[in-house]
């Protein structure tokens, strides 16, 4: 299998990354090797094997009482943001 640089650029776009020219080619050739290695799993017959997505044995979602708890003060959260007006995060104009 050969990954074309265009395919890498497309996936990067989905991941909200912008790869410069050099990097697209380099990633494509490295991904070729890595994905080919990952495809060795295809040799293994897994018919009927239930996927395991978490090692937690009985993966039940724990419930808690539906009580509002104030955990994060707004000013502390905004303190780490690159741009705010003291009340909200500021981003470039959307509409």
């Amino acid at each position: 299998m050969t990954i074309q640089p265009e395919a890498v650029a497309k996936v990067a776009k989905l991941a909200k990354l912008r790869l410069d020219g050099d990097k697209v080619g380099r990633f494509a050739s490295q991904m070729d090797g890595i994905l080919a290695y990952m495809e060795t799993l295809g040799a293994l017959d897994t018919t009927g094997v239930e996927p395991l997505y978490s090692p937690v044995a009985d993966a039940v979602t724990p419930m808690r009482p539906d009580v509002a708890v104030k955990t994060c003060p707004r000013d502390k959260i905004l303190a780490n943001a690159p741009q705010t007006d003291g009340q909200f995060f500021i981003v470039p104009k959307i509409v």
Binding site: L41, G42, P51, L52
Partner: peptide, 14 residues
């Protein structure tokens, strides 16, 4: 082909 397959093999590894 990748993610679900890997999750199946993960069960075999466990």
């Amino acid at each position: 082909a990748y993610y679900r397959k890997a999750a199946q093999v993960r069960r075999l590894i466990r």
